[in-house]
Simulated scan of single mutants.
Amino acid sequence: MARPRQFEQEQVLDAVTDTFWRSGYEATSAQDLAKATGRGRGSLCNAFSSKQAPYEQTLRHYQQRSRHNVEQLQQAGPVRERLRTLLLSVLDADLGAAQQRGCLATNAAVDQAGHNPEVKALVRENFGILEKGLRQAIFRGQQTGELRPGADADALAWGVAKD
């Protein structure tokens, strides 16, 4: 029985994301994407109108990770522990990888956002997702007394989301 098309699309997008994440936009070639996905270059050209299209999809796909991280912050339990767990899991994932890749959104900001308005918008949107989630968690922690009530939740969230 054939696998559903959605499953195949997710696998291709995961492979494309990993390739851009490891190498960056400029250093990734069509051949690199073909090799990573197991698809022919012609097949990829038919699926994507340009190299820019899968890169933008990669950034949208990465936003799902950010949304997932924010969902983890919103779960029941001590806010301080949720924040600690999130930050440590992000660090552990990168440090435990064969190649340290850093934050894809930050990489895209440095690599492409300065001269590509669509990438700039996607990077800002990603940081906005994280900032909002962190701000809400910090505010909730302040309300429960876990975190200093006098600290500026917006400033704290902005500092963590951008670093």
Results as ranks from 00 to 15, higher is better:
residue 60 R to S: 07
residue 58 T to S: 10
residue 64 Q to I: 02
residue 49 S to T: 14
residue 48 F to W: 15
residue 36 A to S: 15
residue 42 G to H: 03
residue 63 Q to H: 15
residue 42 G to D: 08
residue 39 R to Y: 10
residue 47 A to Q: 14
residue 35 K to V: 08
residue 41 R to M: 03
residue 40 G to P: 00
residue 49 S to C: 03
residue 48 F to Q: 10
residue 64 Q to R: 15
residue 57 Q to M: 12
residue 65 R to T: 09
residue 43 S to L: 01
residue 60 R to D: 06
residue 36 A to C: 11
residue 53 A to I: 01
residue 51 K to V: 00
residue 57 Q to C: 10
residue 53 A to E: 15
residue 67 R to D: 08
residue 64 Q to V: 03
residue 55 Y to L: 05
residue 40 G to T: 11
residue 49 S to P: 04
residue 36 A to Q: 11
residue 52 Q to V: 03
residue 45 C to M: 07
residue 33 L to V: 07
residue 61 H to G: 01
residue 33 L to I: 06
residue 51 K to L: 09
residue 33 L to K: 11
residue 58 T to L: 03
residue 52 Q to K: 14
residue 51 K to W: 11
residue 43 S to T: 15
residue 56 E to G: 02
residue 65 R to N: 12
residue 65 R to P: 02
residue 37 T to K: 07
residue 41 R to E: 06
residue 38 G to D: 08
residue 53 A to D: 15
residue 63 Q to D: 13
residue 41 R to F: 01
residue 47 A to W: 01
residue 48 F to N: 09
residue 64 Q to S: 07
residue 63 Q to F: 00
residue 53 A to L: 05
residue 33 L to A: 12
residue 41 R to A: 03
residue 37 T to Q: 08
residue 64 Q to L: 10
residue 56 E to T: 06
residue 43 S to H: 07
residue 54 P to N: 05
residue 49 S to R: 13
residue 33 L to M: 11
residue 44 L to N: 05
residue 53 A to C: 06
residue 67 R to N: 08
residue 49 S to G: 13
residue 38 G to A: 09
residue 64 Q to H: 09
residue 61 H to D: 03
residue 43 S to F: 00
residue 65 R to M: 05
residue 45 C to W: 03
residue 37 T to L: 05
residue 54 P to H: 08
residue 51 K to R: 13
residue 34 A to Q: 11
residue 36 A to E: 11
residue 55 Y to M: 02
residue 50 S to K: 08
residue 51 K to F: 10
residue 46 N to S: 12
residue 53 A to Q: 15
residue 48 F to P: 04
residue 62 Y to I: 00
residue 37 T to E: 12
residue 45 C to T: 03
residue 60 R to E: 12
residue 44 L to K: 06
residue 44 L to I: 00
residue 58 T to N: 04
residue 43 S to E: 14
residue 45 C to I: 00
residue 59 L to D: 07
residue 65 R to C: 03
residue 65 R to Q: 14
residue 58 T to M: 08
residue 57 Q to S: 10
residue 35 K to G: 07
residue 35 K to W: 00
residue 49 S to D: 15
residue 37 T to H: 08
residue 60 R to C: 03
residue 46 N to Y: 12
residue 66 S to C: 08
residue 50 S to G: 12
residue 67 R to G: 01
residue 39 R to E: 08
residue 52 Q to F: 02
residue 51 K to T: 01
residue 38 G to F: 00
residue 62 Y to V: 01
residue 54 P to G: 05
residue 36 A to P: 09
residue 42 G to I: 00
residue 66 S to T: 05
residue 46 N to M: 09
residue 54 P to S: 06
residue 35 K to R: 14
residue 47 A to I: 00
residue 49 S to A: 14
residue 46 N to K: 12
residue 57 Q to Y: 11
residue 55 Y to T: 01
residue 38 G to S: 11
residue 40 G to Y: 04
residue 61 H to P: 04
residue 35 K to S: 13
residue 59 L to S: 07
residue 57 Q to E: 14
residue 35 K to Q: 13
residue 43 S to C: 07
residue 54 P to K: 02
residue 37 T to Y: 06
residue 46 N to I: 01
residue 44 L to D: 03
residue 65 R to F: 09
residue 59 L to N: 07
residue 40 G to W: 02
residue 61 H to V: 04
residue 42 G to N: 11
residue 58 T to D: 02
residue 38 G to Y: 00
residue 67 R to T: 12
residue 45 C to D: 10
residue 39 R to Q: 13
residue 64 Q to D: 11
residue 61 H to L: 02
residue 35 K to D: 15
residue 62 Y to C: 04
